[in-house]
Design a protein around this nucleic acid. Structure first.
Lengths: 207, 207, 207, 207
DNA sequence: AATGAATGAGGGTTCATTCAT
DNA sequence: AATGAATGAACCCTCATTCAT
């Protein structure tokens, strides 16, 4: 009976993904999960030693991908291009070229990792991503000599906002082309706003 | 009236506030709540007929305040001033004058009402506030002849982002003067970004 | 504030009567009772030391009355008249004359004592009344030389039936004139049936 | 299927039968029930989704049997024979022949269904059976031109009495041969009494 | 006398997890 | 590998009763 082993595990992971996505880890139910996967509670524990473990397997690869992404500095490099580009009309074009690079990160499982991991060992992932966004935002902000008060705290707020925008888009528009457009708008908005409050109104240096 | 009635009810409400704030309504525990309040389960039900009722008493006045605020159109009027002000240097001043008006709304209990009410009759509050923000954002956007794609969906994303920014500030900075500064920055950021993507780069109409 | 003491107690007893009548002792609620009486839980315990005590005061006098009735042999004497009357056409008249004598016993509180006392010290009242009915039924039955099998057990069944008929009438028709008619019919039915199975079909001795 | 599944379910149903029989549905306790069945609360909910479900499984087949019985009109046909038989000496013989037909209906679970179902979806069963008995009683009564006052109400009283007699026999004598004798006597008593008050004393029409 | 706050046991039910089969 | 029965703690809530005021 074991020849379908991988398939069962796959179904459990898929059902787990949906379960955690819909209810969050805390309010997820193993009973409901296994029912959706078409197997039984007992068998569930042949594949995972507890509820947290399957959560880890659902989001684990996502976490690696994020870490890879972060350490590759791809995003930072793109941001550099935008920040250093004074001619804002170019932004739209640059974004269109590079947003496709970010999209593979912004998946349903990314959403689960960040927004549904409360009560697990992964619940600090959000904080890590937040810190990453904030750090690079602050770096650029300081480089550009912002005169904004509470720059550190404001950076955290904006980082949070940025992240929440992404999560909202994933949640409501999945991973399709509409999502891509919205994320492009979102990033554009974010840079516009950032430029605005860091460099001053109109995004110019002369203020 | 018994000797400690008001005091105990106050303690219960405070403990409830903290409980709902930390765990959300769904994952809150009456046992933990009453323990924190220094009383017993049985006594809890002398003050509230069920868990949802105490939640209602914690956030009820908040909801009224929000509704008053929304129907007063104060925020909309302020937004009008900002949107119609082409000289962006004025924005900072206008905001400094008016942000104090919004602050009384942005309380911890506002946070609970919006972010911790899942499972209660109040869980649609978030959607209402979101809709309110979106509606007025879209109105102005359309007035200003935006060329952004998916304006409706983008509006929802931005509305969500705006709300999340506020909630984040409340969660991390309470209701003090730092919070006020952050909210000012946040709103400024939001308008800068909005102007940017609606009117085009540099906030000008000529693009 | 004590000048209305008796009145409060009276209201409690009335509310108790209704409470026990509607829900029975076990499922009765002191909270509901005191609410109906227009007073408070605390005050209730100034008048009665516990739930069973008020039950006792509601049905106590009833119990005495029944005991008086039983020891007075009024019912037995009437039954004698009927049993010894071979001309059954007279029964109706005899009953009409004597049923008024029984009616004061068949009150709402009698119903409560017999049918709603489960869980109290009074729950054996039913058994006592049953025994009383059975004893006098059996006495007459033996006197009349019944040939029925299991006369003792049958007597208990019939006694129970008789009692349940009375209780049903009280419950559904109160203590008015309709109730009186029904009780008359009921007793007539009971004697007819008793005569039938004890003396044989047609109530004659020759079978 | 697990090794003890059927056995445990059987024990639960037996314990449930006893629990409902002793305390009625409302005052029954799942904790007590599972203790008597030798299992745990948690396990109970592996077999039944709630307290009412096990009640349904205890009495469900009984309800079907009653409905079958009622719709088969067996009882009515037997009653016809008795009512139309003027020679009452035959009654005893007729009853002896037919009472065995009713016995399978008069079980402990029938008792539970009728007398212990308060608070469940089955609590109207008593009323249905009562109505059934009353209807057929009234039919015959009207056919025979009774002169009894309040025939409708009296019919309900007698129906109630009849039913209570049966329940009492089940409660006190189980389902054995003694019960059969008592039920025979009970039905005989019932017909004797009915004939008596409907047709007049001595069961004749000439009064 | 009157108030109602306080207590804690018990109500039905859900849960993740263990383990015998 | 697969099944689902078994466990017990925890969930929200109701109850009769006590006692400080």
């Amino acid at each position: 009976m074991q020849y379908k082993k991988d398939e069962v595990k796959k179904k459990l992971l898929e059902a787990g993904e949906e379960e955690f996505y819909l209810y969050g880890f805390k309010d997820s139910s193993v009973r409901r999960l296994v029912k959706a996967a078409g197997t039984t509670i007992g068998n569930f524990y042949n594949y995972f030693s507890n509820k947290e473990e399957i959560f880890g397997e659902v989001v684990g690869s996502e976490l690696k991908q994020i870490n890879n992404f972060i350490s590759s500095h791809e995003f930072v490099d793109e941001a550099d291009v935008l920040f250093n580009e004074t001619e804002t009309t170019v932004w739209d074009k640059v974004l269109s070229d590079s947003v496709g690079m970010f999209m593979p990160v912004f998946t349903k499982r990314f959403y689960i990792l960040i927004a549904c991991s409360g009560g697990t060992a992964y619940e600090n992932s959000r904080e890590q991503v937040l810190e990453y966004i904030k750090t690079h935002f602050v770096e650029h902000a300081l480089e550009n000599g912002s005169i904004v008060k509470n720059i550190e705290d404001t950076a955290r707020v904006l980082a949070h906002e940025f992240l929440e925008g992404i999560l909202f888009i994933i949640k409501n528009h999945g991973e399709g082309s509409v999502a891509e457009t919205l994320i492009k708008n979102h990033i554009l908005f974010f840079f516009m706003g950032t430029m605005g409050i860091l460099k001053g109104p109109k995004g110019r240096d002369d203020v």
